[in-house]
């Protein structure tokens, strides 16, 4: 079960590739073949199963184009 999830804002990304370089679990692929409207090479969140929400991709992202969410199991309201 995945423990983390990242959201990449395509309109903010400038395609530097720091997120893919520093992801320790190879969850992010760069280049991915997608392009932003400005022509930057976008990364792709290609392996969501391996993400453990460490947050390093968001630390290293210069454009704050990544938000990292930790998935926790919540009690279902009765």
């Amino acid at each position: 079960m995945p423990r983390g999830e990242i959201v990449i804002f395509d309109q903010h990304c400038k395609g530097c590739g720091y997120c893919a370089k520093f992801c320790a679990r190879d969850c992010i692929t760069h280049p991915s073949g997608r392009y932003s409207p400005q022509g930057y090479i976008l990364p792709d969140f290609s392996a969501p199963d391996k993400c453990n929400a460490c947050g390093i991709c968001a630390w290293m992202c210069p454009d704050h184009a990544i938000d990292v969410y930790k998935l926790v199991e919540a009690e279902v309201a009765a």
Binding site: G4, G55, I66, D67, V68, Y69, K70, L71, V72
Partner: peptide, 8 residues
Amino acid sequence: VKKEKVAG
């Protein structure tokens, strides 16, 4: 599943 923002 609840989402908690940890970085951004």
